[in-house]
Design a protein around this nucleic acid. Structure first.
Ligand code: SF4
Ligand code: SF4
Lengths: 137, 137
DNA sequence: AATTAACTCTACCTTTAGGTAGTAATTTAA
DNA sequence: TTAAATTACTACCTAAAGGTAGAGTTAATT
């Protein structure tokens, strides 16, 4: 029961960029070094974030990355969705087919409250809410 | 953000056995059929549950499986622990080293409440609480 | 004693997540 | 105009999760 590696990296990357808006651009090398994420893997993730329109990339010398939206407009849940790591409405916690509302699984009653709270947390927390809040980056 | 397949299977298997205590033993074939879990994979999981002392196995013809403890004494969290799928106290949601209480990660403030609620749910829900509660099995 | 129905063990196969390598394309600065 | 610094793309490699095969062991029934 945890976020996958790629989601974790993506959240940290975006939070870091949001927290360094004084620098107009951050390069992959800078990010990779600051966040201790393997360079080649980071660039792969960056490309996905660019395609998802969260990040704008400037190519060529002096290029780099910056947010394409306001930090308050990117929610943690949006990031998880890119990597298929969000808590899915229709998916049963026990992996039994789909939620149809009619037929519950054994854990349903216990699961609903934490599920809703986590969804709320992921959906309501924006980059602005989390950027620069930790001493761990 | 979901339970892994093996944990899901294990919870369903144990809940099913707890819900059928009128039968003194259930065989791997019966379980595999009833729960629609691949036979060979199920037997592998059963062996782990036996080693973890949650289940007692009787070998030979007319053999099968039964709970080794009272249903109220097996918590969902105990099952998750076997498959290393519990929510770890010391592990950061963003995967940054270990929780030391001193130095927070960006998501810490948002994560604490859902984390505690989920831990509580997993730790306090026993097989007795969940057995036979769903129409999905 | 042989047969059958069960669990157990070891080894392997397949799929997915995580990660790496090399090259192409783009832009700026010297 | 060339070299350097940068992102983008394609292909591959590795490790872990999920799953399968087959032979071995146990015990009741015939
Ligand atoms: S029963 Fe509850 S947990 Fe299971 S699928 Fe339906 S809503 Fe999801
Ligand atoms: S900061 Fe919070 S989430 Fe991150 S490691 Fe510490 S306790 Fe865990």
């Amino acid at each position: 029961m945890k976020l996958n590696n790629t989601s974790q990296y993506a959240i940290r990357i975006l939070a870091y960029i949001a927290d360094h808006k004084e620098k107009s651009l951050l390069s992959a090398v800078e990010l990779s070094t600051a966040l201790v994420i393997p360079y080649k893997f980071l660039t792969k993730i960056m490309t996905e974030l660019v395609k998802a329109d969260f990040i704008e990339s400037i190519r060529g010398r002096e290029g780099g990355f910056k947010l394409q939206k306001k930090a308050s407009e990117i929610k943690v849940d949006d990031i998880l969705n890119i990597f298929n790591d969000s808590i899915k409405e229709e998916e049963c916690i026990l992996g039994i087919g789909f939620c149809n509302g009619m037929c519950k699984c054994a854990l349903h009653d216990q699961w609903m409250e934490p599920k809703l709270l986590m969804q709320k947390m992921f959906r309501e927390s924006s980059l602005e809410d989390i950027a620069g809040r930790g001493c761990k980056i």
